[in-house]
């Protein structure tokens, strides 16, 4: 299976620049773990940042380069040197399918507290389950959602940005079919009617803007059950 739907330049650039908040960054980083192509794109963006850094206006107002270097040189002996080598590559070039190694990649797995079979799902009724993911980011809501196979979701629009990353199974909407590793980004302009495919439940990471306006399709799904 090949990933067809990637992170937009918009999100990826904010991630590369370090301005993207924690909740969105969790979604982007989890896609990057599954998508070598987007890691190449990220590297190109960081390369562009490096090229711009070379050309930045570096005329320092007043500061002395000699003092700065003297201070640095004086510290070198005290700086603990990291002799560990670079991260070893993963054992094999696995395909983007949920293999025996697991479903949730890092950094998501640590946030959730284990893989999908090791953590407690909260039943939402009608066969749907969720896990709320705690981040320090008050501007987003982050959750794992399990949508029952074949289940349609009511038609709706979005108030804010939403990022959905498929981790297991697949869903379809007016845009396309989304499988493992695929990302769908949505904003107020998208009217869609996602439906989990028939063969298995669909597990997604959903990041939405907070405060919740009960507008995302994820929340629409659970709204009647929670009576909110």
């Amino acid at each position: 299976m090949t990933i067809k739907h990637h992170i937009s330049d918009d999100f990826l650039l904010e991630y590369a620049a370090g301005t993207l908040s924690e909740g969105w960054s969790l979604g982007v980083a989890s896609h990057l773990a599954l998508c070598p192509e987007c890691r190449e794109r990220l590297a190109a963006m960081e390369g562009a940042a490096g090229a711009l850094l070379d050309k930045i206006d570096a005329t320092s107002p007043g500061g002395s380069e000699e003092d700065a270097w003297a201070r640095m040189k004086g510290r070198l002996g005290e700086i603990r040197v990291e002799e560990v080598l670079r991260d070893a590559p993963a054992p094999s070039a696995a395909l983007a399918t949920a293999g025996p190694q697991g479903v949730l990649p890092e950094p998501l797995r640590s946030y959730v507290g284990g893989d999908i079979h090791e953590v407690k799902w909260r039943a939402l009724g009608r066969g749907a389950y969720q896990i709320l993911i705690d981040t320090g980011d008050r501007t987003t809501q982050t959750r794992l959602l399990r949508i029952p196979a074949g289940k349609p979701v009511p038609e709706h629009t979005h108030q804010g940005r939403e990022l959905t990353l498929v981790l297991s199974g697949s869903f379809r909407d007016e845009v396309d079919r989304f499988g493992r590793g695929d990302v769908e980004e949505a904003d107020g302009s998208l009217l869609h009617q996602p439906k989990a495919d028939e063969d298995q439940d669909c597990i997604c990471l959903a990041v939405t803007e907070a405060p919740l306006k009960f507008s995302s399709w994820i929340v629409r799904l659970v709204q009647p059950i929670l009576k909110i």
Binding site: Y15, G18, L20, S21, E22, S25, L26, A29, S30, L32, A33, L34, C35, P36, R39, D87, A88, P89, A90, P91, S92, A93, A94, L95, A96, Q101, G102, V103, L104, P105, E106, P107, R109, Y111, T135, G136, D137, G181
Partner: peptide
């Protein structure tokens, strides 16, 4: 702030093709 990052040594990580 926090910026979650992927981990190339994670078994679930999908490495580049050869």
């Amino acid at each position: 702030r926090r910026r979650p990052q992927f981990d190339a040594s994670d078994p679930v990580f999908v490495a580049d093709s050869a």
